[in-house]
Structures are given as structure tokens and as C-alpha cells.
Design a binder for these strands. Structure first.
Lengths: 334, 334
DNA sequence: CTGTTAGCGCCTTCAT
DNA sequence: ATGAAGGCGCTAACAG
């Protein structure tokens, strides 16, 4: 929205564009205090703002990081972005944002387009961290978040999914439940789901594949009704057994509760429940929900700080996993 | 993270860079089908991607819009961004994202920095749409969202706050409530809050300033306790009167419910309640909550479409207000 | 201390 | 249908 160029400033001030450029880049040792002051005045009065596109082209660096989000409607995402954004602006970085809408193809396109934009680095909350697209990128300028790839190609910030679930479910076991179930979106290849299930198995001693209740993704109405039927059968046949559920995130938790409400089953009377994730609306549930609180904003902060640090060093170390601790909140829901 | 240039492609393919450039820009009429096919193959095989920075510089256009969000942790924000993002990628636009964290100063900085980036246009969810910073921008390349300025400087996408609240509260009046209260964050100069209060007044016939319960912003513990005390008094003294509350958004709703739960007051037995905004967690509240559903994603979509259209036309029309309709959801909460 | 100049990668007339 | 060359606004040696 402006039209002045460095050339104009040079002419107006009477100095060469090189000096102006030096001024713009803070190379004050290359000029007298007088010219510095003069330039300051001219630039201030004209309201001149250097064209960042040109600057980026010349510098091969654009102080921009690309952020690829798997699903922005996931409430987990907001705090992460908040953290990233905070750190980035602190360090004078801009962020260009893309959303994959849970679609692997879109994700690939997003990554490609970020690469085309030649961002300095990327933070990726991947739909599929195992996608071949990532083989074309390097750990020097990328940080992954949340989901991790089987083969760790990049520094990755995760929460201690397995451990946290194991702890929580151990509490449930100790509370004397005869039967426990892990409720989840389809496990697929998603590391967070698998790790959480893993923690569940370790706490309960069940074998892989057992006591697993899968909730279909949003929008699949028929499949969802099957899930409801499954819950109904389970509850109808449990007899006097004490039965409990661990849901792998808040959305799944909502699904389970809805299914339970169909027959007016209530926790903790008819069943016990605990969930991964904590959101503010859980405060008003009565009884309150036992849940695993993860510091999502911190994930964003760490990812951004790590990335910016790497961007400075340019030393390529081996990809590492960074674990953000969680907090177990015990209430009366089981 | 790539090194191929248009020059490389020219050499590899045996054509000149001009032809390659023409190919990249879809000027196919300027070349034979044969060279076109050949180029396609080379580019595909090499995985070449033109450097967008250079392209932007040459073209004086960067296909980037800036998005300034007032508070990304507000759950209203995600769907809006989702909508914006969808439209943008559809049209080959990138979005650079900034978050003001509800802080006017940060917002000013964000706007300035977006201007420096010389974005093609901006979509602004403003903390303070009346800030003088906006006087330096033009309606040709900006769309506002949600909150509107007193003096309409830009096209603005809003929901029909006043009307929707009026309708809902009218239902409450008809349900025979003796006393109704509007529960809100501090009204301040925020248009959405004021419009909603306005609708409330029109439905109830109360005078300006009456029946207004203000919830302090998050983090102000003492003030919040005052609010709780206020609710307690209200409920204790209501006698046999039928009393109802309309909360101006979901977060305020949560605050009210928490306050009510301190003395174990339940809706709709002890009080009636309805709220602006609908979120998925409301589905599991029993009884269900009467609420006003707004299509937030559509707000984002409209904003982006409008902006991109303006960017094409470059005709400056008078700023206009676009209203996204809402839906009244009646349940048993009052 | 200050100015000259050659790029950065791509687009775009203008010839051929 | 294809190529040569200048330019977008700025940076970064290298001279002076």
C-alpha cells in the first residue's frame, strides 16, 4: 500500500542507496551519526517502508515460518498456534498458516506450497507424519508437533501420551474396575492414539486389540449408530460388573457420553470414565471429570523456540523427541 | 529448501527461460504443444517449483492476505479461520496470520507488520475496530469481521446479533419469566456485546443499563468472586419469582453455571438460561441448552470471498455491512 | 565513511 | 513459436 523505494529515499536524503540500505539493516558502524540521524528523519517523515519481498529475494531469507495444521477445528490446535505465534512475533518472524482439514492430499499441497514460498522453516502438526513428502525436507528447518513418525526424521514435540494414560488408567484399575475399555477414533497409524492405547494396555494388562472401542469419525452416521448399539449391549450385559472407560480425547468423550445418555446411564453410578484432554467446559460437568491436562500452548512455544534456534545454528543434529509433561486431574467421574 | 531455478529448467529442457516462464504462467498459446509437453515432463521430473518471492517481486503482487485475529483462544476463531483458509487456498492465496491476544497494542503492531509485508489485502477480527490505525488503511483491500466500528470504514461481516438475541429473549419472556438478566463480559465499546444487549433490551423492555450482570474477564479472581456473590444474592432473594438469564457467549455461560453450582442451583428448576453461541459440548448437557447457533465458518468464507473479489475489481465502493444469519435452537433450559 | 555494481529469480516487452 | 535483455527493490561485496 506504499510506493516509495529505497531509491527515492536515497535521492531525497542525498545519500546513495547503499548507505540507505545499511541504515535499514542496522549497520550503523558504516556511517556517521549525522547521516544516520538524517536518514532517520527522512524515513520517518516519508513513512517509507522497505519492500519485504525484494529484501527477501536479495537475502534468501524471509523471516517467515510455515505452519501446517492438520485440523484447525480441533480445539487442541488453538493453544498450539497461540504459542507459536507468540514466540514468532517476539523474534520478528511472521507465520504463514495452512490447514489440511484432516486430508492427507491437502497436507501434501500445503507443504509443497510452503516450500515454494521458501519459508525459513516449518512447524508441522501432521495428518500423516509418515508421508513421503517429508522425506524431501530436512531436520535443520522443521519441527513436528503432536504426532510422530515411525522413523523419527525431525525433532518432534509430543506429550507423554503413553505414560500419562498409563497413570490414569492405573488409578482406574486400583479403583476396582472389573472391566475397562479404551475408546478412540479409529487407531489407524496415528501415533498419539496408538501411544495412548499402549499406555492403557500397560496399565490393564490386556492384550493388543482387546477392549478397544472405536468411534467412527464425525459425519459417518450409520457407523456411529453401530457404536451406540455396541455401548448399549455392553452396558446391558455387564450385570454387576464394575465397568469403566477411558476416552482418548475430548471429542470422543462427548461421543461416549451421548451414547450413554440414550439409555440414561450416568457416571459414576453406572460406569466410570476418564479422558485425555481438559477443556473449560469440563468444569461444569457434575460430577467433575477425571482428565489428563496437557499444556498445549507450551507445545507451540517449544516448537517455535526450537525451530528458531535451529534456524540460527544451522548445525544439523540428530532428530530428537521432546516430551511435554502432562498433569493427571483426579475427580469423581470414576 | 530447493535450489532449482528457472534457468536450470531452461538448460535442462533446452528452451529459453522466457518460454519456461510462459509455460509457468499458462501462456500456452505462445508455444507448440510439443514444447509444452516437454516442459511439463521436465518440471514434473525435477520437481521444480518457481520461487514465489522472485515472482512476487517481478509481478508486484504477492497473493497473500494478512489475517489479524483478536484472540485465537476464543473458540469462535477456529471456524472463521477455517473458512478463510479454505477460500484462500482455493484461489491460490496464502495467508499470514497474526494474533493480538486481546491486546490493542499488539493489534496495532500486527497491522503495521502486515502492511510492511505488503500483503494484497487483510481480514481483521479486531480487538478495537475503532483504533486510529485503521484510518491509514483503505476499504479496497480490507474486510472486517465480527466486531464493527462505530463509523463503518470497511466492509464488515457480522452476525445478526441484535435480532437473534431479541428473538431468543422474546421466547423467554413468553415463557413467563418475571425477571431476566443479561450476563456479559464488560460491555466496554465492543459492538457485539452491545448489539446483543440491545436485542435483550428490546425483547424485555428494560431500560439501558438495567438487568445487566457483568462477568469480569478471565484471571481476575477477586472480581469474579464478587460476581458469584451477586448471583448468590439474586437467587437467594428472588422468592417465588421466575428468573432467567441470557449469556452473551459460551464462556460467560460457563461462568454463570459455575456460580450457580456453588449453591447447587439447577436449570430449569431454579432458573432459566439461554446463551449466544453453540458448541459441541452443549450436546451432552442435560437438559439441553437453548442457544443461538451462528455459522462462524461462513463468516470466514464470506470475508475471504469478499476480499478476493475486491482485490480483483479494485473499484472502491462504499463500505457495507454483511449479515450472516443465525439460528435459534430451543431446548429445555428455560 | 560512502558510492558502484553485480546479482537474487522471475516476468515481460521486443525482436527474430 | 522462441530468445535476448532489461527491470522489479533490495543486499552485499568491493572500491574509493
Amino acid at each position: 500500500m506504499e510506493k516509495l523505494t529505497i531509491n527515492d529515499i536515497a535521492k531525497i536524503s542525498g545519500y546513495s542507496i547503499a548507505t540507505v540500505s545499511n541504515y535499514l539493516n542496522g549497520n550503523y558502524q558504516k556511517m556517521s551519526q549525522k547521516t544516520r540521524d538524517h536518514l532517520a528523519k527522512v524515513i520517518d517523515q516519508t513513512g517509507y517502508r522497505p519492500n519485504s519481498t525484494a529484501r527477501n529475494l536479495a537475502k534468501h531469507e524471509n523471516k517467515t515460518i510455515g505452519v501446517s495444521i492438520s485440523d484447525i477445528t480441533n480445539p487442541f490446535t488453538s493453544p498450539v498456534m497461540s504459542g507459536i505465534s507468540e514466540v514468532c512475533t517476539q523474534h520478528g518472524y511472521k507465520m504463514i498458516f495452512t490447514n489440511a482439514d484432516n486430508d492427507q492430499k491437502k497436507e501434501v499441497n500445503n507443504i509443497l506450497s510452503l516450500r515454494t514460498e521458501s519459508v525459513s522453516g516449518m512447524i508441522v502438526d501432521a495428518v500423516d507424519p509418515n508421508s513421503p513428502i517429508y522425506k524431501s525436507l530436512t531436520n535443520e528447518a522443521l519441527v513436528m508437533v503432536d504426532r510422530q513418525a515411525k522413523e523419527l526424521l525431525f525433532d518432534t514435540i509430543v506429550t507423554d501420551n503413553r505414560q500419562a494414560v498409563k497413570e490414569m488408567v492405573t488409578h482406574m484399575v486400583q479403583a476396582g474396575y472389573d472391566e475397562l475399555y479404551f475408546v478412540t477414533w479409529p487407531l489407524e497409524e496415528v501415533s498419539t492414539r496408538q501411544m495412548r492405547y499402549q499406555g492403557f494396555l500397560e496399565a490393564t494388562g490386556y492384550a493388543l486389540g482387546e477392549h478397544l472401542l472405536t468411534v467412527p469419525h464425525l459425519g459417518q452416521k450409520e457407523a456411529y449408530q453401530q457404536f451406540e448399539a455396541q455401548i448399549e449391549t455392553l452396558m446391558a450385559q455387564k450385570g454387576t460388573k464394575k465397568i469403566g472407560f477411558f476416552t482418548m480425547n475430548a471429542r470422543v468423550f462427548l461421543r461416549l457420553l451421548k451414547a450413554m445418555q440414550l439409555k440414561a446411564y450416568q457416571y459414576p453410578r453406572d460406569y466410570g470414565v476418564a479422558t485425555y484432554e481438559e477443556f473449560d467446559w469440563m468444569q461444569i460437568m457434575r460430577p467433575e471429570i477425571s482428565c489428563i491436562r496437557q499444556d498445549s500452548k507450551k507445545i507451540g512455544v517449544m516448537a517455535a523456540e526450537l525451530l528458531l534456534a535451529k534456524l540460527l545454528d544451522k548445525k544439523s543434529a540428530l532428530p530428537q523427541k521432546y516430551i511435554v509433561p502432562t498433569e493427571i486431574i483426579l475427580k469423581q467421574s470414576f
